[in-house]
Amino acid sequence: MSEENGDLEFGRILLALDATGGAEAAVRAAAELAAALRAELEALFVEDANLLRLAGLPFAREVGFHSATGRPLVLEEVARGLRAQASGLERMLRLAARQLHVQCSFRVARGRILPEALSQTGHPDLLVLGRQARRPSLRPRPRAVTPPVLAVFDGSARGYRALGAGAVLAARTGRKALVLIPEPSRDRFQTLKSRAEEWLRRREHAARFEQVLGLDMDSVTRRLRSLRGDVVVLPEPRDGISEAQLTALLDAVDGTVLLAR
């Protein structure tokens, strides 16, 4: 049975978090989705090994994102901060899970978040990443209007999963859904749009659609950056996604990225 005709099934959602911020929004998004899709939620908090090693060096200093001022990094403080953050996120996750009747687990690992998330065994159906961009934003602060949930649809089975997850998340959070279709051909875009609309209509969802004039991940990333959304669901490419592409995506969205597998 193809995804186009079947129901959405997400057995396991992996939520990967680190200390860079933006984790709270990712926790909420993942918990809502897990509740809506009746999936099991597994959270992984990754303590950045490089950060800990850096903090152990005698000259370790941090230059602020916004202030541009330097301040010393102290290992004990960094380690304590990471532990506190992990514990706070765990409390938050378990509270949300209890309220939404979601089965969840929480564990802490050390390493780098993206390799750790991408290399997880058991192959989760949905990978949720929450982190901030790695550099100061050039764009204005988020607008008062709640931005739509962004979803990328390419017509593939994973595309339908991304479309469904995006629509469900939009409905759960009371937001609109905007579906990007990376397709240079206008006719092909219209075909994909019609199929997606019909698919959503059968599930009593609706969305706006927009054509992205490029099939590659870079085109999608550029459009995501200009849309200024804070949550995007997209299908993981068949040949996988590189750490660099994922980093670029996270920088572009500056919020929560969900990869449907």
Partner: peptide, 16 residues
Amino acid sequence: HTPAGFSFAPTKEGEV
């Protein structure tokens, strides 16, 4: 990339 900014560290084979 640190929690609140940036930092520099000597590396060896991609690891600090």
